[in-house]
Design a protein around this nucleic acid. Structure first.
Lengths: 112, 112
DNA sequence: TTTCGTTATGTTTGTATATATATAACGATT
DNA sequence: AATCGTTATATATATACAAACATAACGAAA
């Protein structure tokens, strides 16, 4: 019965999106599966979309977020760099803080 | 060259969207023009879309946000209630505070 | 040198959303 | 009762986006 406040945050670099909730979710899945194709399956998006997102991420970031290898043992794979891992931790932290902050602001609507 | 952090916030009521940036923009235009059709034109959206948004707003809100009249002098019109005016002020206030808060958080990304 | 599963990419198909168009209903004013 | 610009609504068209499909390139290992 009460109002709820919701939000989406994202990080941009030179007008390109670096990180958003979907991109962070993809990076987490890559970290867990070790490959882009498995990560895409695990979060139910097409490989093509996942590839486009990851490509955009690495083009926008100041430092590489993943290392992708093609061919070789197991066909290749993708793994997060230390920078990539730190980014998703920082993003989650900011996002959580944002939710908490907004919850304190909601009273301004409820009390009208 | 630096990263930027952006956000969108919105208010929901029983899983229906009450207010978001687009809806607030529409309400402001209604307040300035006195009619839904003129408001739609002024923000470059179709009347149908504007009508759907306004209908959704009034169905989600606890109290009426606009009073719409049909027929009569000038054909009718739409105007904000006091509740509607208060809502857009509160929304803008929360949104601005959210931006400022997020700017303080961005350093967590920049410093990586 | 053949195999394998992956990254990388293009092309086609499908779907959801927005736009355009059309029309009815309304009621104060003339 | 005729007019007017608006709200209210349905339907058809167009557009943007996502998904599906297909295929080439890769390189370690057998």
């Amino acid at each position: 019965m009460d109002y709820k406040i919701k939000s989406r945050i994202w990080i941009e670099s030179e007008n390109n999106v670096l990180l958003g909730e979907g991109r962070v979710q993809l990076l987490k899945a890559i970290n867990e599966t070790g490959s882009l194709s498995k990560a895409a399956k695990s979060i139910n998006i097409s490989y093509k979309k996942a590839w486009g997102l990851l490509d955009s991420i690495n083009k926008s970031a100041k430092k590489p977020v993943t290392i992708n290898s093609v061919g070789g043992k197991g066909g290749g794979g993708a793994e997060l760099t230390d920078y990539g891992k730190a980014l998703i931790l920082a993003f989650d932290d900011i996002n959580k803080n944002c939710w908490e902050f907004l919850d304190t602001q909601l009273e301004k609507i409820e009390s009208l």
